[in-house]
C-alpha cells in the first residue's frame, strides 16, 4: 500500500467540482483508492463517499492506494491533485 497526503486549498473545500475531478481521476486507477480525513474514510471512486467526508478548506486528507499498480497509480494521482485541486 502506498500513502500520501494533500491539503485542500479551495475555500469551499472538496465541494462538487473538485470532488468530481478527484473521483474521475481515481476511477482511472486499477488500485483501490481510499481517502481518510479525521476518523472518517471513504472510497475515492464513489462521489457520495468523497462528498460525505465534508473536506473543508485547509483539511489534510490522507490517500491510500492499494493494488498491483499502486506505485504508479499513487504517483499519477498525486501529480493530478497537485496540479488541479
Amino acid at each position: 500500500m502506498v500513502t500520501f497526503t494533500f491539503s485542500v486549498n479551495d475555500e469551499n473545500g472538496l465541494h462538487a467540482r473538485p470532488a468530481g475531478l478527484l473521483v474521475k481521476e481515481a476511477m482511472k486507477c486499477k488500485s483501490a483508492v481510499t481517502l481518510k480525513k479525521g476518523g472518517k474514510s471513504g472510497d475515492a471512486k464513489k462521489i457520495f463517499n468523497v462528498m460525505g467526508l465534508a473536506v473543508k478548506h485547509g483539511d489534510v486528507v490522507t490517500v491510500e492506494v492499494d493494488g498491483i499498480t499502486e506505485q504508479e497509480d499513487a504517483d499519477s494521482l498525486k501529480k493530478y491533485i497537485e496540479e488541479n485541486l
Binding site: A16, R17, G20, V23, I47, F48, N49
Partner: peptide, 18 residues
C-alpha cells in the same frame, strides 16, 4: 464551470452505494 455540475450528476447516478 457551470456545465461540470451535470458531470457530477452523472457520477452520482453511477455511484455504487446509491
Amino acid at each position: 464551470a457551470n456545465a461540470m455540475i451535470f458531470e457530477i450528476h452523472q457520477m452520482m447516478l453511477c455511484d455504487e452505494d446509491y
